[in-house]
């Protein structure tokens, strides 16, 4: 795995050097360190999968004849996600106290959206990844940053967030550039996209107990994650569609029925290898 020398930080993994010393890591018990190795290693795997998803987004944007700037940003996002995988692997290695390999590749398959036209399917791929997943990721990482106090983890979360915001913008930019007739077609798909994305975030394995200690190292507690998901939909995604003049009655209804706040993210305690 390699990221580009011409990427966002000219071949560097992060915008700023990461802390070389982090006494808070040294102070952890072996069990807690093992838990955090697992958290960050798992994050490396999902970041790598998102790189595959952005390959799909770039293809979709080209098929849609999107603006060159947006295509370039999406192409950069592929590279960004490879950097994120490396950053997460590096952080996991720091907790492990030794260099770790990359985790196995996670499967990725493009959403089929069988009832959509080719053009609409491309748009849905962009929205699903950017306006939904990356916007949710931004809310999640903002919560991570807020609760993290370990220097390395906090710096890493900040680096991830700065890119995810750019990635989320792609979706909102493409939507704003789409004519009303396209946005009209999208409206009926919004609850489905919302439902699928929320489910993916809820079902994403987070095999650690909810403890303030772990939140300090970039692994927020169950209630914090549930709150971030609710915030993403209530304060970012739904208002975002409303900002673009799209009806959101169904999304509001879905939110009330889905009970984002009532059904918290499941975090299972898991003994790590």
């Amino acid at each position: 795995m390699r990221w580009s020398e011409t990427g966002r930080w000219n071949g560097k993994v992060t915008s700023r050097p990461l802390p070389e010393c982090d006494p808070s890591i040294d102070a952890l018990s072996d069990d807690d360190r093992a838990t955090l190795v697992s958290v960050w290693h798992a994050r490396a795997a999902t970041e790598r999968r998102v790189a595959d998803s952005f390959t799909l987004v770039s293809h979709a944007l080209r098929e849609l004849n999107a603006a060159a700037d947006l295509i370039a940003l999406s192409d950069r996002a592929i590279d960004d996600e490879h950097r994120h995988a490396e950053l997460s692997r590096y952080v996991a290695s720091r907790y492990a106290g030794k260099e770790l390999d990359y985790p196995p590749l996670l499967p990725f398959s493009a959403p089929k959206h069988t009832q959509a036209s080719d053009e609409l399917r491309h748009t849905l791929h962009v929205l699903g990844q950017c306006a939904f997943n990356e916007t949710i990721a931004s809310a999640f990482l903002e919560a991570c940053c807020e609760h993290a106090n370990a220097p390395l983890a906090k710096a890493a979360c900040r680096e991830l967030l700065s890119d995810e915001i750019d990635h989320a913008r792609i979706g909102w930019a493409q939507l704003a550039a789409s004519p009303p007739v396209v946005r009209n077609q999208i409206v009926a798909w919004l609850p489905s996209l919302a439902n699928a994305n929320l489910r993916m975030w809820r079902e994403s394995p987070r095999k650690y107990p909810s403890r303030e200690l772990f939140a300090g190292h970039g692994a927020p507690s169950e209630p914090v994650i549930a709150g971030a998901l609710a915030t993403a939909f209530r304060e970012l995604i739904i208002p975002g569609f409303e900002h673009l003049g799209m009806p959101t009655g169904a999304l509001h209804t879905w939110m009330d029925a889905e009970c984002v706040a009532k059904s918290p993210v499941k975090i299972t305690e898991h003994r790590l290898q």
Partner: peptide, 15 residues
């Protein structure tokens, strides 16, 4: 309206 996301199965990007 019935809404299902079955055709999204297999897509699990997350972070």
């Amino acid at each position: 309206a019935k809404i299902h996301d079955a055709d999204l199965d297999g897509w699990h990007p997350t972070k």
